[in-house]
Write a protein that binds this DNA or RNA. Structure first.
Length: 134
RNA sequence: AGAGCAGCCCGGGCAGCCGCGGCGGGGAACGGGAAACCGUCCGCCCGUCGAGGAAAGUCCGGACACCGUAGAGCAGGGUGCUGGAUAACGUCCAGCGGGGGAAACCCUAGGGAAAGUGCCACAGAAAUGACACAGCCGCGGCCGGCAACGGACGUUGGCAACGGUGAAAUGGUGCGGCAAGAGCGCACCGGCGCCACGGUGACGUGGCGGCCAGGUAAACCCCACCCGGUGCAAGGCCCAGAAGGGGGCGUCUGAGGGUUGCUCGCCCGAAGCUCCCGGGUUGGCCGCAGGAGGCGUGCGGCAACGCAGGCCCCAGAUGGAUGGCUGCCCACGACAGAAUCCGGCUUACAGGGCUGCUACUGCG
RNA sequence: UGCCCCGUGGUGUAACGGCAGCACGACUGACUCUGGAUCAGUUAGUCGAGGUUCGAAUCCUUGCGGGGCAG
């Protein structure tokens, strides 16, 4: 899980990222991203560390609540392991597509993580020091 | 041991590391204060708790909350053998009747068809005020024949057994009886009514009478009992924001509204109400988890369950927490994720364990 | 989360409890040099499982699938 402070928690936040942000995608997921709002960035800098905030969207098309939870947990776990190497100061929304369900069943965390890295590279959200750490 | 039946229980385990949510404590920061201390907040540390037997479907029943009162009648909905259990139920327990099975046992919406109405396709003479198609018997004359008898015809005579139809045709089988027949008589069976006995009762057993009564009420309906409506997005509090314009009716001779669909009744309304257009609201807190609560003990009861006292506290999120990795073991892990709570029902489910019972076979 | 509604061939729709029809489509054949149009024929359905009834698309119970409303 990601800490609460680093989660998108309002429908407003989601709407802003969808409307104003850019999107990149592959077969398994869509990523929307947008620079954080000014007041939010202000607070972050005053607190010291600037981090990305993230939200996940898994619709009922993926299956029952059990499979949806499974998908969401693997997305969170993938993000957690990649958090340090993502460019700071962005709000991110990951949307699971229908093909992600079978991927979770067959490949597990490793598969989801790989596809997330792919999407982040497409969106140029990969920070330079990230390459060294991977 | 194999086969079957019923009931109950479990739903991967252990260890390590990283991560998440609630609660408690520590610590830090900020604010207030002279201080003690108080409040707010957290990205750090420690402790502790953290999905299910179905959390599911939303099919029933409640708790709880609100609705200017929830009252009457009609309408509407539900339930339907008997007795009990329960907060309540369409649930559960114990029985009764019916059906199935060799048995253990299983299934059963199972009140009323002599209150009324409707329907019973096709076939069949006829489908419910059943009354007759083919036919059987009697009687009458005619024809054939020596006769017995046969044939066709007539009949304001008798009959309903036999034939064919159908899911179903005024009970079934046998004997007697008769011109032919028929509960016409008798025996047994089935159904109905009355009486006696047993049982709280559904009902059972026995006796007597007599043959009158098609099915369908998960068709309308009748009878008995039950049901106010809306649902935690209920509802309450705090903060913030907002813009008004036009029309209609009325100010005690009362507009308008609420009350379940209608009617009545009741209530609100001494001044506003209502319609149209336009504008604002997608913040926070409470409700929210100590309950018809679990576990074991004793007593009462066949049981469901009740009573008494003991121990325990066991999720509480709000874009919504249980995940990832590693090792070991095994039966190699199914169906599946809380969102106000509880009691049931139904449906899905890898596999495993325990107890009791039934008939047969094998072994001792 | 709560409440409400619907389900008939591939599609759109009918059917007092009594043989499941109709239109479009698809396929085959005829007509034509070929296609279209036309004509003839064929295909294929009551969402699943139980129950009531002599008999169920219809009535009852239960499941499945789809849709709508409420901040």
């Amino acid at each position: 899980m990601v800490r609460r402070r680093s989660r998108l928690s309002r429908s407003q936040d989601f709407q802003r990222v969808y409307r104003a942000g850019r999107s990149v995608a592959n077969r398994y997921m869509v990523l929307y991203f947008f620079p954080q709002a000014a007041d939010q960035a202000q607070k972050e800098t005053s607190a010291g560390a600037q981090t990305a905030r993230v939200g996940f969207s898994v619709s009922k098309r993926l299956g029952s609540s059990v499979t949806r939870n499974k998908v969401k947990r693997l997305l969170r776990e993938s993000f957690r392991s990649l958090e340090g190497v993502i460019k700071p100061g962005f709000d991110l929304v990951f949307i699971a597509r229908t093909d992600l369900g079978p991927l979770v069943e067959e490949r597990g965390l490793e598969g989801v993580r790989g596809k997330m890295v792919e999407v982040l590279r497409k969106g140029s959200l990969w920070s330079e020091e990230g390459d060294g750490r991977l």
